[in-house]
């Protein structure tokens, strides 16, 4: 890895009462790298990206975006939390895609994409609109510019959500199980968009249950279990020698479940 990582997570912990959702997680993401975070439910994958985006506080450790401390500032020989306005500024440099899409239902598709550009980044409406048109074309929804989210399928909503996150040209995209809430036949259209982003060199962390897709599109995998990073490495080595039994068990169980679920047409 050369230079400063885009994102650097150092030994972060996050507990909910007695339960440690993140139990000392460290992770570096280099410019242009796509990292797939995999692992069983409740392993802390989603908490990790939510903490990186400062939607949840961390109890200890530190995180850096382009070398800048996230969420805190130096004050004397210690650090103190940043004021909310500064936290908002840091969030603007990251894009987030949620499992449940979270489009704003009271705005049209276009307004969903333009509003942050205008209100947060101070672009003028025409400029923001141009960017929205360009992004909607990119995700294949140019004809839905004036639709409301309820009029779109889940897959279309998630593609708009991706366009919305891209609108402000984030340094890194955080995708939190982007296809988990979708009907099986709608998964592929979203994966296609994500694949294009990866090919375009966007830096991304993808939390996903789509193991096959993750291994195809990512440069590196991170396997988490019970709040810890159990293993990580290049995706090519995910099944290689020296991989832990836990990862092997997860992968075999997962492919089995996935297969049987597909046959029943159920959502996974």
């Amino acid at each position: 890895m050369t230079g400063v990582p885009v994102l650097s997570v150092r030994n972060i912990r996050r507990s909910f009462g007695e339960h440690a959702a993140l139990d000392g997680v460290s992770l570096d993401v280099a410019q242009g790298e796509v990292v797939a975070v995999i692992g069983p439910s409740g392993s802390g994958k989603s908490t990790l990206v939510r903490c990186v985006h400062q939607l949840e506080p961390i109890d200890s450790g530190a995180m850096y975006l382009d070398g800048e401390l996230l969420g805190h500032e130096h004050a004397g020989d210690r650090v103190r939390p940043l004021p909310p306005r500064r936290v908002a500024e840091q969030r603007r440099r990251m894009g987030m895609v949620f499992q449940q899409f979270q489009l704003f239902p009271h705005w049209t598709v276009t307004r969903n994409i333009t509003e942050a550009q205008v209100r947060v980044h101070g672009r003028d409406r025409a400029q923001a609109h141009e960017r929205a048109v360009e992004l909607l074309a990119k995700v294949g929804l140019a004809d839905k510019a004036d639709a409301y989210s309820r009029q779109l399928s889940g897959g279309q909503q998630q593609r708009v959500a991706i366009a919305r996150a891209l609108a402000t040209r984030p340094r890194i995209m955080l995708l939190d199980e982007p296809t988990s809430a979708l009907d099986p036949e709608l998964v592929d259209e979203v994966l296609t968009v994500i694949r294009d982003l990866a090919a375009a060199g966007l830096t991304m962390i993808i939390v996903t249950h789509e193991i096959a897709f993750a291994l195809e599109v990512a440069d590196r995998f991170v396997f988490m279990d019970r709040g810890r990073v159990v293993e990580q490495g290049p995706v090519a080595d995910v099944l290689g020698d020296g991989r832990s039994d836990r990862l092997r068990a997860f992968l075999s169980r997962y492919t089995q479940q996935r297969g049987s679920a597909r046959e029943e047409g159920a959502r996974v």
Binding site: H53, L55, R85, E89, R92, Q100, F104, V120, H121
Partner: peptide
Amino acid sequence: DPGQRDAAMAMGFT
């Protein structure tokens, strides 16, 4: 939905 608040904050809204 609290997720709406998350999404807005995530986009950098104050």
